[in-house]
Design a protein around this nucleic acid. Structure first.
Lengths: 352, 352
DNA sequence: GTGAAAGCGCTAACAT
DNA sequence: ATGTTAGCGCTTTCAC
């Protein structure tokens, strides 16, 4: 039924070894026989069995990718970078969706391990000491995107500096005359990201002498509905009357918050400024378009692949370890109102 | 280095076959030895090599998925259904992103074939006679999602009835008093979908005695920018002054069109009604939220997997062939204005 | 430049 | 219930 390398070999009147050579090292086979073999391959419509090859060479040229959920909009942005770097190094990608479950993520490791991936990229969930035992034994290089390792096992990680990013956001708002600034942060089981972003907010509020109050803070699950509900909650509280701006831990939540404000008859940015986090495609689609913090997803994807490849090729050295902070940037669009009558550069400057 | 089934076997004092049995047919091995083997597996942190297994059983329990682009928002919706049906039947998914290139799509087939997938799901590009030769030889079941086969080779396909869907959209608008209705349709190399949706529009315009004019129609690439540009073009044309509604071939284009209208100081839906196609997550996120045609992506994903599994399990029979139309539905939100002073049910009815 | 043979890690008869 | 043996399809020394 299935046509194998042997079928090709006999059709071309050569040995299987020769067919294998024209497939993998064509330069060291006589041009004439090469022709014959290639003709046979085409005639028989032969397609080499990747598993057999993988078994034989015990290498797959595949990297495994564990993601929290394929529905997360940021994931596709990240994927682009990963895909790019992989195809440049002709690596294949094996995807595993953990569906936001720690348990499933572990299953993912098992799955990828069985499939002999050369390396694993882990995305977006906190990698803490629970994973140490795993990584100690796994024997496969692991790198992290959009998260970092807090366990004993150090791992190369690529992400933005969340604390700094939100600090910058608050500074940006302060520079535009905002003082009463609220925060919608993230939340989930192991969500270091949300904590870091909150910390950036806290530090900035303190730094600028505004003061930090929990009553200005709510959290959501990073999604639209979470943002909506968080905004709802904020609107219920007393101090909200005084808020002029909200910073959020994700674009989706920012957009959910905008919808909530809209439903309450409040206008963005006239009644309330809103600022997102991620700079996804949707940030520029909504009206008003969303001012937000850009994460360089594509570059993060590329870097994490490179780090992984480096480890795969030189397992002995540990050239890249620990967290690398990739540059973020505030993308100015339409959801932040400047409250200063005089938008003097001077004023903007003094915040930093 | 790598720990194999043999290592486990010797550690547990049994043969490799027994280890294999506890892995695959645990019921027919003595409980006591099973214990020993499992202990050895755990102690050695053994992970069976999926490739070796696949080679041996010549089956992978994997289906290949060829998609046009992972960035396309509709894809993640479809994926959910595919993933669900696959995990229910414990099938794995091997993803291949063709990046909207016909050439890459062909590479995808090669790739998936090498990896011995049991079946292939092809998404969203027209499958025409160019593929016939391929499918005749490939020997792997293929099923289609969101597209259909127009070549000689009949293939099970699951999609909405695009003609009917847009016809319904126009009927919906007509029932609400619209007559001067424009259309932004899709376009790309092999875009049957766009053509079908246009045809639905054309038929409806004729059916309702409004008349079809090319000057009311533009096209875009289904994306935000395409929708924006198409709307821009429509606004440039004379008749646009008389348009009261625009139907589009995708939510993203609808949202792009909305942005364009906004930039021209036009209000949706007061100055212009807009209706999308897809019902992606973003449809409910924008303000005003988008009235649109829902495609049952998740169900389509599930059905296509089921069809594929059926073919895989019973290759001889051809129980499911040809195109299955899945039900669409207009989701009413905020972008369509009713122009009738009296919204009589009677009036709505007579359109159908 | 090409072929023969061994083996990658696992499973599946067939024995026992 | 368990072990023995023979592959699955390919690559890779090692001869020639």
């Amino acid at each position: 039924m299935k046509v194998t390398i042997r079928d090709v070999a006999s059709k071309a009147g050569v040995s299987a070894a020769t067919v294998s050579r024209v497939l993998n090292k064509p330069e060291l086979v006589d041009p004439e026989t090469k022709q014959r073999v290639q003709a046979a391959i085409k005639a028989l419509d032969f397609h080499p069995n990747a598993m057999a090859r993988g078994l034989s060479v015990s290498r797959t040229d595949t990297i495994g990718l564990v993601i929290p959920g394929i529905n997360d909009l940021f994931f596709t942005e990240l994927y682009r970078g990963i895909e790019k770097a992989c195809s440049e190094n002709n690596m294949k990608i094996l995807l595993f969706d953990s569906q936001h479950s720690r348990h499933r993520a572990l299953e993912g490791f098992t799955f990828l391990r069985r499939h002999q991936v050369s390396g694993i990229i882990f995305t977006s969930k906190l990698v803490d000491q629970d994973y140490d035992a795993l990584f100690d034994r796994i024997g496969i290089p692991v790198a992290l995107a959009l998260t970092e390792a807090t366990g004993r096992t150090p791992l190369p990680a690529f992400k933005v500096d969340d604390v700094r990013a939100v600090f910058d956001v608050v500074a940006y708002l302060v520079a535009r005359g905002h003082q009463r600034i609220g925060m919608i942060t993230g939340e989930s089981e192991d969500d270091r990201t949300g904590l870091l972003r909150l910390e950036g907010y806290r530090r900035a509020m303190l730094h600028f002498g505004i003061g930090y109050s929990e009553s200005f803070v709510t959290s959501g699950n990073y999604r639209f509905d979470g943002g909506y509900a968080a905004m709802q909650e904020l609107l219920k509280r007393q101090p909200i009357n005084q808020l002029t701006a909200i910073c959020t831990a994700s674009d989706e939540m920012a957009i959910g918050a905008m919808r909530c404000l809209h439903d309450h008859g409040l206008s963005v940015p006239d009644d309330m400024s809103v600022i997102g986090f991620d700079d996804l495609q949707i940030a520029r689609m909504v009206i008003p378009s969303l001012t937000t913090v850009m994460q360089p997803f594509e570059e993060i994807g590329e870097q994490v692949v490179r780090a992984l490849l480096q480890r795969i090729e030189q397992p002995s050295e540990l050239p890249r370890q620990g967290t690398y902070y990739m540059p973020h940037r505030i993308v100015e669009r339409e959801t932040v109102k400047c409250l200063n009558s005089s938008t003097s550069e001077e004023q903007l400057e003094k915040c930093f």
